[in-house]
Design a protein around this nucleic acid. Structure first.
Length: 429
RNA sequence: GGAGGGGUGGCCGAGUGGUCGAAGGCGGCGGCUUGCUAAGCCGUAGCCCCGGCUGAAACCGGGGCCGAGGGUUCGAAUCCCUCCCCCUCCGCCA
């Protein structure tokens, strides 16, 4: 959520319209919002004034009664009664205006940072850097689903029966490898990068989804449990963004770094027929998330650092990747700036997004009510950042496909071996 | 699921339907005292919104905020309703 102050100056209005245009949103909503805000302020002014008079009269009644002047008190009560009715009518209208404003305001995305490349879609994204050499093979590299089959570590069949498409099962060393990845990520971030590990709920209330910016706009992407009004999280970002709801931090308490492993659930409603093969796009997957609460002036430095923390995972695994700065048209709703990290998948011959690292500035903090009292006494919203560190299925894919050998065996990167009981190679069954 | 108790300012905690933010404590800030610190003493202090002011800060005026939302009343932290959360007991179950 943006500061609605932006609707009260010509420059702010122009800035917001431009931001919406760059994101591919209709800037037409802005005029409507400006009108609602103006009406809201006008009503607020009127109501405030009437309440002032009303308060005066109420106090007068109290005073008169205490002084025993009951008849005069009755007179004032009579006046006050009609005023009270008038106020109620205006308050009703004020409530309606507020609700209408709020409804639309919650659908307005964040304003992109000035450093974000302007463009309609992913074609305008900018590759910031590439790390590692793409592997060359003296054989045709296999896609992960073939490797999973050969090695007997992935199960695509039984999940289809028990749950439908876009689910995967791991078995044997596959399950162990998945667990190893999660543990490796968490250990790295907690011991070397200073994040505090948390295990949050994965079922949350609607208001938590609103706070993180995932609702009301993306309802069709969420699994919902109507009987209890709960939603399955699409990312631990939701849980971590709600860790300090309605909190006023002291400046010394920031920054705060959190990491969490959770399963994530996505309906993928808009992706019919896309990435159906293998485990590129799943309804349920595992992810280790990174999250920071920072002072506003530090958030862009913290963004770069978080990006490095996520990159470090791939470096230690030896998986080649590139970092991409997303364009205005490709960024998520709450983000002011986003980097994607894409791992190379030689079997698929494509780059796979394994991480997305974003600064939402105060967009989520405003929705979640997370503020900081500065040393000079002023209060402002904190900045929040989130990033994957990493998502496992695609890391799993990249790992299998990069380290495969001619016979289908897969070499386990050294960093992971301690988590695999020292195992160096997964052999075909 | 059943019964009962409770949610008050950054934190803890008192509170009457009518004296403009609500005792007290902790913590905060300013000052005095002090070789320095601690202790002590004095003072000050909340958050949000509207307006003065085109934007921001300070300041001034006003409104709102005692879990959330409605309601009763001239007037509600205080009474009523709904919801949320916490605690205790009982039942059930990992």
């Amino acid at each position: 959520m943006l500061d609605r102050q932006i609707l009260r100056s010509p420059e702010g209005i122009a800035r917001l319209k431009e931001a919406l245009k760059h994101r591919g949103y209709d800037p037409g909503v802005v005029e409507r919002l400006v009108a609602l805000d103006e009406r809201w302020r006008e009503l607020t002014r009127e109501v405030n004034e009437l309440r002032r008079v009303q308060n005066e009269k109420a106090r007068m009644v109290g005073r008169l009664k205490r002084e025993g002047k009951h008849e005069e008190a009755e007179q004032v009560i009579l006046e006050s009664r009609t005023l009270s009715e008038k106020i109620q009518v205006l308050e009703q209208e004020l409530r309606e205006i507020s609700e209408r404003f709020e409804r639309e305001w919650l659908l307005v995305p964040n304003i992109p940072h000035e450093s974000v490349p302007v463009g309609e879609d992913e074609s305008a994204n900018v590759v910031v850097r590439t790390w590692g050499d793409l592997p060359s093979f003296d054989f045709e590299p296999r896609p992960h689903w073939e490797l999973g089959e050969i090695l007997g570590i992935l199960d695509f069949e039984s999940p289809r029966v028990m749950s439908g498409s876009r689910f995967v099962g791991y078995r044997g060393l596959g399950a162990r490898l998945e667990r190893a990845l999660i543990q490796f990520f968490l250990d790295l971030h907690t011991t070397e990068h200073g994040y505090t590990e948390v295990i949050p709920p994965v079922l949350v209330r609607e208001e938590s989804m609103i706070a993180s910016g995932h609702l009301p706009k993306f309802r069709e992407e969420m699994y919902e449990i109507p009987a209890d009004g709960l939603f399955l999280i699409p990312t631990a970002e939701v849980s971590l963004a709600n860790l300090h709801r309605d909190t006023l931090f002291a400046e010394e308490e920031l920054p705060r770094y959190y990491t969490a492993y959770t399963p994530c659930f996505r309906r993928e409603a808009g992706a019919y027929g896309k990435d159906v093969r293998g485990m590129i796009r799943l309804h349920q997957f595992n992810k280790v998330e990174l999250f920071k609460y920072t002072l506003p002036e530090q958030s862009y430095d913290e963004l770069e650092r978080m990006l490095q923390d996520a990159e470090r995972v791939l470096q230690l695994l030896g998986i080649p990747y590139r970092v991409v700065a997303l364009s205005t048209g490709d960024m998520g709703f709450a983000a002011a700036k986003t980097y994607d990290i894409e791992a190379w998948a030689p079997g698929l011959q494509r780059w796979l997004e394994v991480s997305s690292v974003s600064n939402t500035e105060d967009f989520q903090a405003r929705r979640a009510g997370v503020r900081v009292r500065r040393r000079n006494g002023t209060v402002e919203y904190v900045h929040t950042l989130n990033g994957s560190g990493l998502a496992t299925p695609r890391t799993f894919i990249a790992l299998l496909e990069n380290f495969q050998q001619k016979d289908g065996s897969v070499v386990i990167p050294e960093a992971l071996r301690p988590y695999m009981g020292g195992l160096e190679v997964i052999e075909p069954q």
